[in-house]
């Protein structure tokens, strides 16, 4: 009985937290900027730190994952004499799953954690209060550009990741393992569909982007403003962000590709 009550209490706390996070997101996005030039400037700065600075890790990981996939795929497919299909395997796994998911996980670790820490530190050093005191809404000024930048960057990064993976895969399978150039591409093009594969992958990346960035900025904004509190919030961002990505990925995959 006691357990049931505490479970109920936990559930209500959880619902309340979700509600608070939802209101928080709503308020940051629907308070329009007063000075648009300034707002664009802030957004560019965030695109730089969220997107441009994540580019190297995304390209490098994408290339290596593409190379490894080709090696593994080749050695398995060769047993059935259909090593030409390695392009198909590579493209489908990158576009549907690995591109969006791995990019999102890297993004949670690289950009999400730094968003949380940055906002948490702004809170701890009273910079957020300071904006409020000056009659400037910190949600609009600090949170909104970071959120929007995250939502723009992750889908783009996921495209870059997949493209880097394909290029890495071509290098290994065509350049090194000797798969024929023509059948590599033609089998790939035959089995990859623009709408079901590329667009669905893009939709996944977009959903992950909203989830991770939302978690990151909210954790930063609501953290206990001490060094310990910021540390914990950062960890929570990475853990919750990654779990959210994996859970959402299952739901989205079932919805998109489930009707075989």
């Amino acid at each position: 009985m006691k357990g049931l009550i505490s479970l109920g209490a936990w559930f209500f706390d959880w619902l309340e937290a979700i509600g608070r996070a939802g209101i928080f997101l709503f308020q940051s996005l629907f308070r329009l900027p007063v000075r648009w030039g300034e707002a664009v400037n802030l957004l560019v700065r965030q695109l730089y730190s969220v997107g441009v600075l994540s580019l190297v890790i995304i390209i490098v990981s994408g290339t290596f994952i593409g190379m490894v996939l080709s090696l593994q795929g080749y050695s398995i497919l060769a047993k059935f004499g259909s090593e030409d299909s390695v392009g198909q395997l590579l493209a489908l796994s990158l576009l549907r799953e690995l591109g969006p998911v791995v990019t999102a996980l890297l993004f949670a670790g690289r950009a999400g954690s730094s968003l949380t820490a940055e906002i948490g530190l702004m809170k701890a050093t009273e910079q957020l209060s300071s904006y409020e005191m000056m009659g400037v809404d910190p949600l609009r000024r600090v949170i909104a550009p970071r959120f929007i930048a995250g939502v723009i960057c992750l889908p783009l990064l996921s495209m870059v990741f997949s493209a880097a993976g394909i290029i890495g895969g071509v290098l290994v399978s065509v350049g090194w393992l000797g798969v024929s150039d023509g059948s590599f591409w033609s089998l790939m093009q035959q089995s990859v569909y623009f709408d079901t594969d590329i667009l669905n992958g893009l939709i996944k990346a977009l959903v992950f982007a909203v989830a991770i960035t939302w978690i990151s900025v909210y954790q930063g904004y609501e953290c206990v403003p001490t060094s310990e509190g910021i540390g914990k919030a950062t960890t929570r961002t990475v853990v919750l962000g990654s779990l959210a990505v994996l859970a959402l990925d299952f739901v989205l995959t079932a919805a998109m590709f489930g009707d075989f």
Partner: peptide, 28 residues
């Protein structure tokens, strides 16, 4: 927020915006 525009506050910790220079802080 209109009322706060008429209020200046010096925080105990200073609370300068760390992503701006001194000049930009005062100009903000």
């Amino acid at each position: 927020y209109k009322v706060r525009e008429k209020i200046g506050m010096l925080f105990q910790s200073g609370a300068l915006f760390s992503d701006m220079t001194v000049f930009e802080n005062v100009a903000f």
